[in-house]
Nucleic acid binder design. Structure first.
Lengths: 141, 141
DNA sequence: TACAATGTTGTAATGATTACATATATGATT
DNA sequence: AATCATATATGTAATCATTACAACATTGTA
């Protein structure tokens, strides 16, 4: 059993060829891909793959905490195989999503709302990455 | 000109009957409603209102910073007329969305990513509100 | 009143996601 | 290995939120 299959088993997911391929893709592509990106990129090496299978598999992976879903892009749900707590920055110009650090003190509790039980935290930043800031500045000149 | 119309003008939005009604609804209902909730609730008093108008108006309001959009609920976009910086908590049992405080230190910059220009921050918590925690505990007994 | 610009409406199209029925693969038992 | 039950994968069709677009209405101005 390969490394990716072991990873799935450690999350209580029965490995299948499709599940391994999708999990492997997510681990090798920390680009926060959409369903369609995953499907289209895997199709050449897996011609029988179905879009439905991608949806089903991503749901199984999420339910077993093998990935997290991002709703930072209003157009598409994005998927992230990195389940360590972290935040995300999306550039409104180039659309790229970057992993960023989660500021200290966020994980504990909500100030004034200590009675809430927190299961998950999503922190999304939107703005301009350095590259796109420079492009905007160049266009002004 | 009434208070809501003035509010729109202060955001550089030309007031119309529909825009005033939608803005007023958002200010009087800090419940983070969906498009459909807004549409259905306003329809009795505004029988000619169109769903498209609600979509159009919400976009205009957002573009002029008169509201913020929430992608905390994967099923529906939610709208919030409170544009002061704050975070949100959504209960996975009852579905209610609560306004919460934004922890100190978040607004400044991302640790290790100081070159990013941050325009907006969304902080979403998910978990169980106190009421639903108690319900779950009662069911166990 | 006439005119131009802006806002509203309804219908139809789009596109992501889900439901569902069928087919395939897996694993255990004989 | 053959059988069987269960789990997984596939393809099509349906759903539902959102957008595109064209026709209509309103507003403000001359």
């Amino acid at each position: 059993m390969n490394r990716t299959a072991q990873h799935l088993v450690s999350h209580n997911i029965k490995p299948s060829a499709q599940r391994i391929a999708i999990m492997k893709y997510l681990m090798e592509h920390p680009t926060h891909p959409s369903v369609d990106k995953i499907y289209c990129d895997l199709l050449p090496d897996m011609p029988t793959l179905s879009r439905t299978t991608v949806y089903n598999t991503l749901r199984v992976l999420e339910e077993n905490d093998a990935l997290i879903t991002l709703n930072i892009d209003s157009k598409n749900v994005r998927y992230d195989g990195n389940v360590m707590p972290h935040a995300h920055f999306m550039c409104r110009s180039c659309g790229k999503i970057y992993d960023t650090a989660l500021p200290e003190g966020i994980l504990k509790e909500i100030p004034g709302m200590e009675t809430f039980q927190i299961d998950a935290i999503k922190l999304y930043y939107k703005g301009l990455c350095q590259e796109c800031q420079e492009k905007e500045n160049n266009n002004k000149e």
